[in-house]
């Protein structure tokens, strides 16, 4: 449904600021595909290229078989897009915004109401309220309604959950799952690693390069070094200590514990516990864990060649 081949793009007068470097991936029909990466990693640039808003410097890309450069207007007819920057008219009411977007997409609210119904009922009590007076989560929901109103074949969502609280984020992802079941292909970007697990497949992107494309489950298997979790009350001291130990790579806080990426041959968890206890971390507990996507991302980021 979406195919990206060797796309590169740079900004600046002399093209001296690279935004994307040889990006490659494919998204199948009906897939919920996540683009995971921090701010400035090139996610928005990629979205703009795929939605025909800007042209790539080199490489090709196609959406639903249409070339992003040559078939610009065909693509614009079949995609829905929710830009990262909030794109509703603050001085128009919820209803007016939705009606406006329905009309410019040559449809009416009634025609595709079933698509947005689940979301729209939540904002319907505020139908006459100006969009500017809605809370962040409500605005996101309205924006999604507007992007969905014409029943697009492909939906592009650029960081829809940034700055939205956990509850709204969860609800938002439930909606995406329902849309997927309607057969809509969804490309979504997010800086939140925990949302990655909710996608069918994900691409990790950093500094304009794709680090890895895989299913969340397969991705954690690409990790070549084991990850250990060390829990203690003396987080900072333990961190200092662990970094000085041989055979231990990166050490970083992770949730309630510390994660340490250790050398492949390193097996002795009990020994490590003992060493920590001797050094004064009496409450140290060490366990081998399966790495999370965030572990993988950090590991790959460090390995990636720096541009």
């Amino acid at each position: 449904m979406i195919s990206v081949n060797q796309i590169s793009k740079a900004y600046g007068a002399k093209k001296e600021i690279p935004a994307l470097t040889s990006v490659d991936f494919e998204v199948s029909k009906g897939e919920l595909f996540g683009l995971i990466g921090p701010d400035g990693s090139g996610k928005t640039t990629l979205f703009r290229i795929l939605t025909t808003l800007i042209l790539a410097d080199s490489g090709t890309a196609a959406v639903a078989g249409f070339d992003v450069e040559k078939d610009m207007f065909k693509i614009r007819n079949i995609v829905g897009y929710m830009p990262g920057r909030f794109s509703l008219y603050q001085d128009l009411s919820v209803r007016e915004n939705l009606e406006f977007y329905a009309t410019i997409f040559n449809t009416t609210i009634e025609k595709n109401y079933h698509l947005i119904k689940d979301i729209y009922v939540q904002i319907e009590p505020f139908a006459n309220r100006r969009a500017g007076a809605l809370s962040g989560g409500m605005k996101q929901k309205l924006a999604l309604c507007c992007a969905l109103i014409h029943k697009p074949e492909v939906l592009f969502l650029d960081e829809p959950t940034t700055g939205v609280d956990v509850v709204s984020r969860k609800e938002f992802w439930e909606m995406l799952k329902r849309l997927k079941s309607e057969g809509i292909t969804i490309l979504v970007s997010t800086p939140y690693m925990d949302e990655a697990e909710l996608c069918d497949r994900i691409a990790l992107i950093d500094k304009g390069r794709i680090l890895e494309v895989a299913t969340p489950a397969a991705l954690v298997n690409t990790m070549d070094s084991p990850v250990w979790a060390i829990s203690t009350g003396k987080v900072y001291a333990a961190m200092q200590l662990l970094s000085s130990f041989e055979g231990i790579g990166e050490v970083y806080p992770f949730g309630e514990s510390l994660h340490a990426v250790v050398d492949a041959g390193f097996k002795d968890t009990a020994g490590l516990k003992l060493r920590l206890q001797k050094a004064g971390i009496a409450d140290a507990e060490v366990a081998i864990i399966s790495p999370t996507i965030e572990d993988v991302f950090m590991h790959k980021m460090k390995q990636a060649p720096h541009a």
């Binding site: 921090p38 900072y236 961190m239 980021m301």
Partner: peptide
């Protein structure tokens, strides 16, 4: 730490720990 990559986020928290110490 909004929008920062996980590595930088960790480095930031290391600074916070240091300051709290």
């Amino acid at each position: 730490t909004g929008g920062v990559d996980p590595v930088t986020r960790r480095q930031f928290w290391t600074m916070i720990y240091e300051a709290a110490e």
